[in-house]
């Protein structure tokens, strides 16, 4: 059984058809890429899979269950984690708090524990602390543990966001332009981090990326979206030499 199966996904924003008849199937452990020019509908596709936008039509089957119409937090609890193009960190919270908050759905101490600080709560919070620290170490941001995220270097913030998504212990990780706005050095770091996650955690990964080198490096199969439709799908080599992709990306090539 495929892990995630998206069938004929279509969404309209008013009169604008942002995504049309989008299909994808994920086998466990697969790493796929999604590329396309600005406004092609990549982020919108992520938003539909994670429940932020409800598709106008189509199905999203995760582990055999149709998740269309479910709340984002329920979808996330099932094991679909994501990062955002613009990060969406919580500006007053520390790095540690970010990671622990992603474990929200696993809280067992309830309101009584929250109000009265029961031993059960202390036990679970300590457990969370340890698990969170593990993720901070994994992404090499443990020395920022108790700092508020605002003001941390950009690359660090990106990695904190990644650690936060991993703390959900997802089955599939959706990464929306994880290297956006990074300098070359930070970018190489990030590629290494993603590779590490892929190898060590054997995670299924869905990657949106503008930088060709990053997608080509990491992904087994790449889809290209243009005006909400898939115009090409294949291995990095096939995509690199695809006429329509080159056409859609004309001028973008400079960035590579």
């Amino acid at each position: 059984m495929p892990l995630l199966e998206v069938k004929n996904l279509t969404i309209y924003f008013g009169g604008l058809r942002a995504v049309h008849n989008y299909n994808v199937t994920f086998e466990p452990g697969q790493v796929r890429g999604l590329i396309g020019p600005n406004g092609a509908g990549k982020t919108t596709t992520f938003n539909m899979i994670t429940g932020i936008h409800r598709p106008t039509s189509g199905e999203i089957i995760f582990e055999g269950q149709n998740i269309v119409g479910m709340m984002p937090h329920d979808i996330a609890s099932m094991g679909i984690a994501r990062t955002f193009q613009n990060m969406r960190l919580w500006r007053h919270m520390t790095v540690m708090e970010h990671i622990k908050l992603a474990m929200y759905s696993k809280i067992e101490y309830g309101l009584i524990g929250a109000f009265f600080g029961t031993p059960k709560r202390h036990k679970q919070e300590t457990e969370f602390d340890e698990k969170a620290y593990h993720f901070l170490k994994l992404l090499n941001v443990d020395r920022y543990t108790n700092q508020v995220v605002t003001g941390l270097p950009y690359g660090v913030q990106r990695r904190v966001e990644m650690a936060r998504a991993l703390a959900i212990v997802p089955k599939i990780l959706l990464l929306d332009e994880p290297t956006a706005g990074m300098n070359p050095e930070e970018m190489l770091d990030m590629v290494e981090v993603i590779r590490q996650i892929k190898d060590e955690l054997k995670l299924t990964i869905f990657l949106i990326e503008h930088r060709m080198r990053v997608v080509m490096d990491l992904c087994e199969i790449i889809q290209t979206l243009d005006f909400g439709e898939i115009i090409a799908e294949g291995t990095p080599d096939e995509i690199r030499n695809n006429e329509r992709v080159i056409e859609a990306y004309l001028g973008k090539e400079v960035e590579v």
């Binding site: 994670t50 932020i52 709340m71 984002p72 937090h73 996330a76 609890s77 984690a81 994501r82 955002f84 990060m87 969406r88 960190l89 919580w90 500006r91 007053h92 919270m93 708090e97 622990k100 908050l101 992603a102 474990m103 929200y104 759905s105 809280i107 101490y109 309830g110 309101l111 524990g113 929250a114 109000f115 009265f116 600080g117 709560r121 919070e125 969370f128 936060r164 998504a165 959900i168």
Partner: peptide, 29 residues
């Protein structure tokens, strides 16, 4: 004091700082 220091309570700060982000991180906003 206890509530605001628990992860359960801090969830409301996460919702305040970024609701979409909180929702995507399993927090029932």
């Amino acid at each position: 004091y206890n509530f605001t220091r628990s992860t359960l309570g801090k969830a409301s700060c996460a919702v305040r700082d970024n609701e979409t982000g909180a929702d995507a991180m399993t927090i029932n906003t």
